[in-house]
Amino acid sequence: MAGQEHVQRRREDEEPPESAPPAAAPSAQARDAEVDSLLEEIDEVLESNAESFVRGFVQKGGQ
């Protein structure tokens, strides 16, 4: 599964100890890194066939 590859990659990324996190407001770069790690988490659960998933999401109108 595609998701597992991401899990492994993340583990490798985390192996080298990081330097101390910045104390001040996060820079744009730090924010990107935070989003990237969220994305890796989400990769594991995202619908594998996005196109057919989106096509299949059909609702009747409501209020």
């Binding site: 989400i42 995202l46 996005a50 196109e51 998933f53 989106v54 999401f57």
Partner: peptide, 17 residues
């Protein structure tokens, strides 16, 4: 990260999911 345009179905899928 993945160089997607806004019409990419993966983004619509994320919105739903």
């Amino acid at each position: 990260r993945d160089h997607l345009a806004w019409d990419n179905p993966r983004l619509a899928a994320m919105d739903i999911q």
